[in-house]
Write a protein that binds this DNA or RNA. Structure first.
Lengths: 120, 120
DNA sequence: CTATATACATAGAATATCTATGTATATAGG
DNA sequence: CCTATATACATAGATATTCTATGTATATAG
């Protein structure tokens, strides 16, 4: 995660904590997706800023399912692979909405503090 | 941390991870401060969104000092207490600058993904 | 036939923050 | 007078999240 190709941009992995599930829920709010697709889409949408590893993504999808924020179903792809699709639930949408408000409060607060920073 | 008074707004504590040191460095970039003052200021500046606990703040100040991002010195206050002030170093300012760029990339990426979210 | 991409999954390591606790002094309230 | 609260520093251990490493399996490209 956080290995930008070109000019080895490295973002502190810890920044990611707590917001990964928001990202996944946001993607699923638009369309059903399967795990591998989610990880690809995240890299694509963010110019490789986020590269969510499978060791992070799959356990998270399972725990989102446990808390009834998403539901899953299997489909066979034309390429011969089995794909486990995830669909967001009403509860999941509510959760996403809450998390988005949290994120706004949080990022505004960080920007407020950083806004006063002095570099020399 | 993250207990907003009025309408028990609770922000996922995990969101904080990785950005706490940026906040501390940003405050110190403007003026020397002591630990207790930093924790108060953070609460004040962010409307109680951030309430950095002492168990988080003091160890972090120590590790920032270990990596030479800050320096400390003791002063006696007029109220009879001893205060350990922290001063940011040149290295610390460089670090702050880098971390701020990381934060921008990161928050832009999150906003990009959230921007496409659909709530019903 | 071997490497790579796709596709799912789990166990254990690493790390950051929190909770809980400790010390000590000053001040306000009962 | 005594106790609670605020100030001010500090550390040990619990908790939680993500990462690393590894595993399975199939299809396709070279």
């Amino acid at each position: 995660m956080f290995e930008r190709k070109g000019y080895d941009m490295k973002i502190n992995k810890e920044l990611m904590k707590g917001s990964t599930s928001i990202l996944v829920l946001a993607l699923l709010s638009r369309e059903d997706m399967y795990g591998y697709q989610i990880s690809r889409r995240l890299s694509l949408d963010t110019g490789n800023i986020f590269e969510m590893k499978e060791g992070t993504l799959y356990p998270m999808l399972h725990s989102l399912e446990n808390e009834r924020a998403v539901e899953s179903y299997w489909l066979d792809a034309e390429n011969g692979k089995r794909r486990k699709y995830y669909r967001i639930t009403d509860h999941g949408r509510k959760l996403l909405n809450e998390k988005q408000h949290e994120w706004e409060s949080y990022s505004n607060a960080v920007n407020t503090v950083l806004g006063g920073a002095c570099y020399e």
